[in-house]
Amino acid sequence: MAPDPLVRVTGLRKTFGTRRVLDGVALDVRAGEAVALLGPNGAGKTTLLKILATLVRPTRGAAAIGGQDCARRPEDVRRLIGLVAHGAHVYEDLTALENLRFWAALWGLRLPASDLAAALADVELERHAGERVRTFSEGMRRRLSLARFVFARPRVLLLDEPFAGLDQRARKWLEEYLQAFKAGGGAIVMATHSFGRELAIADRLAILVAGRIALDTPRAALTSDDVQRLYALHTENGS
């Protein structure tokens, strides 16, 4: 029997005022699996990620991570997730090492300096440990944001446009990082507008259109052209 999915979304609906942003979304993501959420602006990708991250409560339906309901047990869910969204959750006037030290302490972890240095080395920022984040590129900020998860060890990564603003080297690094995260038994839900090679980390594609999942399909057999064709087909029909 297959193990229970790490992420389970059933009949999820979210309305803001009279606007229905999500409407009956269902999605399962298993350990070691990555799902890419594709869809036009306003399709509900970010809202779905925010519900999974316990930042927004659903109007109807349920979202659960590791068997814990996101709306009813947000504290338990927060111990299982790592969110990388548009803001990198880093303080501009602190150094990379100070940022890590702060987040570790806030999570109640007492880590020696060697562990923090190792976390920075894991994201290839060890040479910049003493530099202020204000001087960092977008890619370095993204890596610093991910460094927090080296010691927090989330089981699910929620990523909103993780490749946006990254150069080729940073993209390659992130792809490898996410592949390693999956290989370690983690699950990934990633919202993206990209049809490029970044989709290679996804095992499944889910196309969201007007708050509904219009297509949920394995990615392995699909070429980039296939993805673009399917995307055009579903978004043009749905919008």
Binding site: A53, T54, L55, E75, R78, L83, H89, L106, W107, G108
Partner: peptide, 8 residues
């Protein structure tokens, strides 16, 4: 968001 998501 980071403060909010920190457990505890």
């Amino acid at each position: 968001e980071g403060l909010l998501l920190a457990p505890g």
